[in-house]
């Protein structure tokens, strides 16, 4: 069976789509050889990410087992995870400039 998505590290709370996926698709994944099943709430394009679990606003997003940013709002399992609900915490001159004002 062709793999539809990949989880790169067992700590990760997101998976990456390896093909274009549609809302309503049920994606079967293996995390540490344990089967995980997620039903997608949104379409997720090739190369984009979706959530595996509930992620509260302000919590870290984990990929490669490392922090890639934090949730800017609550995220539910199967939701598209991208710039609309994740904020970078680095190189944010706009934030430090705001703090200085």
């Amino acid at each position: 069976m062709e793999r539809k998505a990949i989880v790169l590290n067992s700590k990760d709370n997101v998976a990456t789509a390896l093909t274009d996926l549609s809302a309503g698709d049920t994606i079967e994944l293996a995390v540490d050889d344990k089967p995980v099943s997620v039903k997608l709430l949104n379409p997720v394009q090739f190369g984009h990410k979706f959530s595996l679990i509930d992620i509260k606003a302000g919590s870290p997003i984990l990929k490669y087992g490392e922090v890639i940013g934090e949730a800017s709002m609550d995220i539910t399992p199967g939701e598209h995870v991208h710039v609309h609900n994740v904020a970078s915490t680095r190189g944010r001159g706009d934030v430090t400039a705001g703090a200085r004002k």
């Binding site: 984009h48 890639i68 710039v83 994740v86 970078s88």
Partner: peptide, 12 residues
């Protein structure tokens, strides 16, 4: 292409 943050890009 699906990269959300500089951290994610850097890790790759």
């Amino acid at each position: 292409g699906g990269l959300t943050t500089i951290e994610e890009k850097s890790l790759g």
